[in-house]
């Protein structure tokens, strides 16, 4: 088990300015499970990643894997930007990586099961540059798993992948995590992926605001929610509250979310022909809904704003 115990980290900039990136963060991640670390940019996810991978020195608190420091030899890392040598072949990348870990590797020694799962058989002599983004990610994962790590840490590994490649990559990740009993820490802002993880640790302004199984986080929202988009939503929310026990939540200036209900129930209270209503949609609740309920602002908006800046 990976134990993150009360870690704090402050960046000291020039001219004496200091930014507290992490503030007393504690959580556990279990073997055989994918634990997603989510949160808006600037919430401390990347600092956590850098601390776990040893790229930053711990200032306060502790990080332990089964009671010991997770040294680099027990660690597999997949970075947001690829750490591959694009001029070399797939095998050469694996070969050189193994040497960094003190292992000489021959093609015949490559774990067949790993190559099968990652569908890299038959691509070992291809130059990395000639592979698609999805397959480059698989080579990256193969590299990280080649040295048989106990802890696998991935930082935004879906960057640049389309939905199909992302889903395929995540399925492989889930498979190897379970099959090898790995402790997998996935830093991401892909909420749809995080929903499929075994556990979600939610970061906000350097602290952990939730640490649960995705289903537990969303249990309060029920199986389905209804989202109404339009104008004068405060009046509408008041009318719904007065005439039913449906709980509503503003998720945007022009959107009202109704928890644990159905479209049919809502249409008995709300007149869809009302000109102030632009759209009514029934859907499953998301982690975004949970994040808004907890923080009062949207996680993806924060990501978008920072990326645009």
């Amino acid at each position: 088990m990976l134990t993150i115990d009360n870690i704090s980290h402050t960046y000291h900039r020039r001219k004496g300015a200091a930014t507290r990136a992490l503030d007393g963060v504690s959580f556990d991640a279990a073997h055989g499970e994918v634990t997603a670390v989510i949160g808006p940019n600037g919430s401390g996810k990347s600092t956590l990643f850098r601390l776990v991978t040893g790229a930053l020195h711990l200032q306060q608190g502790g990080i332990q894997l089964d009671g010991q420091h997770p040294g680099s030899a027990r660690l597999g890392v997949v970075f947001q930007s690829p750490a591959l040598d694009r001029q070399l072949t797939v095998f050469e990348n694996l070969y050189h990586h193994a040497l960094l870990y003190g292992r000489r590797l021959k093609k015949a020694q490559l774990p067949a099961e790993l190559l099968d799962v990652l569908e890299l058989n038959g691509r070992l002599d291809s130059k990395v540059d000639e592979l698609s983004g999805g397959f480059q990610r698989r080579v990256e994962l193969a590299k990280a798993l080649l040295t048989e790590p106990e802890l696998l840490v991935l930082d935004e590994p879906f960057t640049g992948l389309d939905i199909n490649a992302r889903d395929a990559f995540f399925s492989v990740l889930q498979h190897v995590t379970a099959a090898r009993g790995l402790t997998t820490l996935l830093v991401t802002h892909e909420l749809s992926v995080a929903t499929r993880c075994d556990r979600v640790v939610l970061f906000e302004e350097g602290t952990v605001i939730a640490n649960e199984r995705p289903g537990a986080l969303l249990s309060d929202f029920g199986r389905m929610v209804v989202v109404i988009r339009g104008e004068d939503l405060d009046t509408l929310a008041a009318r719904i509250a007065a005439s039913s026990d449906i709980v509503s939540l503003r998720i945007a200036d022009d959107a009202l979310l109704l928890k644990n209900t159905t479209l049919q129930d809502v249409l008995m209270i709300v007149d869809e022909r009302d000109s102030r209503i632009h759209d009514i949609e029934a859907r499953r609740p998301t982690l975004e809904d949970y994040f808004i309920a907890r923080t009062g602002h949207a996680l993806q908006d924060a990501v978008g704003e920072l990326e645009a800046a």
């Binding site: 991978t53 040893g54 790229a55 040294g71 680099s72 030899a73 660690l75 890392v77 970075f79 930007s81 690829p82 750490a83 591959l84 040598d85 694009r86 990586h97 960094l100 870990y101 003190g102 590299k143």
Partner: peptide
Amino acid sequence: KSGFLQGVLTSPA
């Protein structure tokens, strides 16, 4: 720039 170095720096090398 290519990101290769980060892999070396996090390895036991």
